[in-house]
């Protein structure tokens, strides 16, 4: 696939998303640049709490009202950061489909599945009848492996994995151009996971859709993604083609993350992880945000935020790779 050519369908330019809490702002996304092209899948990985879901939901502005957006977020050339709720409704579902991390909270548990689909379909096809809607629903449920007759039930009657499949079907039912999938398969067994990932990939190919795939499963990204963006504490610290990230990681965080993958040798019971914890996002450090845990830390790392440097066809945000410093 053409990686740096296709038309950009989504572009974040120095995007910041800050949550307001009672006492302060949580700078969950704090200046990221990312371009998603037509037909492309970008995998987003990073430590729990680093801002992946915030970015994903920010694309649809599904975050609390008082959330502040800075910079630009272009969805098919329209900057959505200043858009209001009414205009966003047209983007949701039709242009961007969202698969959430927490299916129980995003699927109203006391609305029947058939009604959930009707509400979504009706929003974009006014006048569609309930029976027509049920037909479309039956088809898409079949595709994700759920008995169509179970559309009469409520989400709480489904197992975790089945809810997730309903969620996926709901995100795909309008054939959106961009699919934001936040941990789409974590609550599924690996066989259903493989089927769902195939389905997502088929849809991507047949409609030339683009996918933002947020996941902790480095096996899933290895299979699905064209490019990978690695996030740490509100920043993208590295992005590149998938092979480069796996075989030639640059940023110390990426390197240590990959080292933490458990191997399958039954005799080896050693657990590897990155000691320490990420910084507060309310008052992030002025220097590099990974410095306190970085084995390659230099004095400048505590003093100044590292710039983003282009390297090896990708980008890295680390003092080790800036000109003048001794590479590695």
């Amino acid at each position: 696939m053409a990686k740096n050519e296709g038309e950009a369908v989504l572009r974040a330019e120095n995007l910041k998303i800050h949550y307001k809490t009672k006492k302060s702002y949580v700078k969950a996304v704090d200046g990221i640049d990312l371009t998603l092209r037509k037909g492309e899948t970008i995998g987003i990985v990073g430590e729990s709490g680093c801002g992946k879901s915030t970015f994903g939901q920010g694309i649809l502005k599904l975050l609390p009202q008082k959330t502040k957006y800075y910079g630009k977020l272009l969805v098919r050339d329209v900057d959505v950061t200043p858009l209001r709720e009414n205009d966003m409704r047209k983007v949701r579902g039709k242009v961007v489909g969202m698969i959430f991390q927490d299916p129980m909270t995003s699927l109203n548990p006391i609305t029947k599945v058939e009604k959930l689909f009707y509400e979504t379909l009706e929003e974009h096809n006014p006048g569609i009848s309930f029976n027509e809607s049920r037909e479309v629903t039956a088809q898409i449920l079949q595709k994700v492996g759920i008995e169509p007759r179970r559309m009469r039930e409520y989400p709480f009657q489904f197992s975790g994995g089945m809810r997730q499949r309903v969620m996926i079907a709901l995100a795909l039912v309008l054939n959106p151009d961009i699919i934001v999938a936040d941990e789409p398969t974590t609550s599924l067994d690996v066989i259903v996971q493989a089927q769902i990932l195939n389905l997502l990939d088929e849809l991507r190919q047949s409609y030339n859709a683009s996918i933002i795939l947020i996941t902790h499963d480095l096996g899933v990204v290895a299979e699905m993604a064209d490019r990978i963006a690695v996030m740490y504490a509100g920043h993208i610290v590295e992005q590149n083609e998938k092979e480069k990230i796996y075989y030639e990681p640059k940023h110390p965080y990426t390197k240590l993350l990959l080292k933490s993958i458990p191997n399958t040798n039954p005799k080896d019971l050693e657990l590897t992880f990155i000691p320490g914890s990420p910084p507060s996002l309310v008052n992030p450090p002025i220097g590099c945000r990974f410095a306190s845990r970085c084995p390659y830390k230099m004095s400048i790392c505590d003093e100044k935020e590292p710039p983003v440097v282009e390297i090896d066809g990708g980008m890295v945000k680390c003092w080790l790779y800036t000109q003048g410093s001794d590479n590695q």
Binding site: V45, G46, E47, S48, Q101, G160, E183, T186, S187, H216, L218, L256, L257, S260, I261, P262, L271, T272, F273, I274
Partner: peptide
């Protein structure tokens, strides 16, 4: 599924 939503490093830490 107590560790399902965690990255590999934090998951290992909790394990």
């Amino acid at each position: 599924e107590a560790l399902a939503m965690l990255d590999v490093s934090v998951r290992s830490q909790l394990l």
